[in-house]
């Protein structure tokens, strides 16, 4: 074990692999020294575990109704109580983690590459390309995100896929800005010039050499944005524009508990705690990642 560590921390790595593994190890151990980041990582791990093993973790079905047992308060049998159709809220929250995880993953997978590509192209070519692309990005950036997402969903129709598309459309400009800023810092550097001299095409330079260098700041930003994405998705669900019943989406669950908030508070409250926990998890992890990978950005959002 300690031999492996020594190998990882070797001051003069013998191979590229050793160097990059060593660097990852150092970042990882720095991250593990940050208590908030650890808490965040654990929460997200729990979310993933919950999503993967939902059928085994949840004591009941997510959609199975039990009308005799409607609106039962939290008890040993139903940890979070039951809803207006007698469904076990805890089980629904557990299954809901799948939807949340799916939404954040899809939004990240769609919007981050778009943003990265726009930003890298903008920064790499400069000139008019840059001006046009960044003008567009700025226009999107100064729009209210939630409202725009709402309007898009209104146009595309309610539903989880459309909610994902609408959120992704409003999320990419930030990544474009970041990628552009990063690209500009090393656009004129010698290693890019060297690659160009070898005759690499612009597409190849951007894809193989520019984008990987923008990755770490984008990852930080995506992690920090996750909380916002979760909140927006839940908001759409709450308004009835996201995931549709009987899907156990957390925002939609809160919405259905709205009518009982004064007497059966648990119906609307419980899914809220799940949202808060997961969002906080991403915030903690994002903060920690930023401190480790990009100390100069600390505290600015």
């Amino acid at each position: 074990m300690s031999a492996v560590r020594d190998w990882l921390l070797d001051d003069s790595p013998a191979s590229r692999l050793q160097a990059s593994l060593g660097r990852s190890w150092r970042s990882f151990s720095a991250l593990m020294r940050n208590p908030l980041a650890v808490a965040g990582a654990l929460i997200i791990l729990a979310l993933i575990v919950m999503a993967v093993f939902a059928p085994w973790i949840a004591p009941y079905s997510a959609i199975g109704q039990d009308l005799a047992n409607r609106l039962a308060p939290p008890s040993a049998l139903h940890w979070m109580g039951t809803d207006e159709l007698g469904r076990d809220i805890f089980s629904r929250v557990v299954f809901g983690s799948r939807i949340t995880l799916m939404i954040v993953t899809m939004v990240a997978v769609i919007s981050a590459p778009i943003g990265l590509l726009v930003g890298a192209i903008s920064g790499y070519f400069g000139g008019w390309t840059d001006r046009v692309l960044m003008g567009l990005t700025d226009i999107f950036l100064s729009m209210p995100k939630l409202i725009l997402a709402l309007a898009f969903v209104a146009a595309l129709g309610p539903g989880i896929e459309n909610a994902i598309i609408a959120i992704a459309i409003t999320a990419w400009p930030v990544y474009a800005r970041i990628a552009r800023a990063e690209t500009i810092t090393f656009r004129d550097s010698e290693f890019i010039a060297a690659v160009q001299l070898q005759g690499a095409s612009s597409a190849r330079v951007i894809l193989r050499h520019v984008l990987p260098l923008c990755a770490s700041s984008t990852i930080i930003r995506v992690t920090l944005d996750m909380a916002g994405i979760i909140l927006t998705a839940a908001g759409l669900g709450f308004l009835g524009l996201g995931a549709q019943p009987p899907l156990p989406e957390w925002g939609a669950m809160i919405s259905s508990g709205r009518n009982f908030i004064l007497d059966q508070w648990w119906v609307a409250t419980m899914p809220g705690f799940a949202i808060i926990a997961v969002s906080l998890g991403f915030c903690f992890l994002g903060d920690g990642l930023r401190d480790v990978l990009d100390p100069k950005q600390r505290d600015g959002r």
Partner: peptide
């Protein structure tokens, strides 16, 4: 500050 980024406004309203 972090709660401000993680609590859904509509939920806080209901509570």
């Amino acid at each position: 500050g972090l709660l401000g980024y993680s609590v859904p406004a509509f939920w806080l309203g209901l509570v």
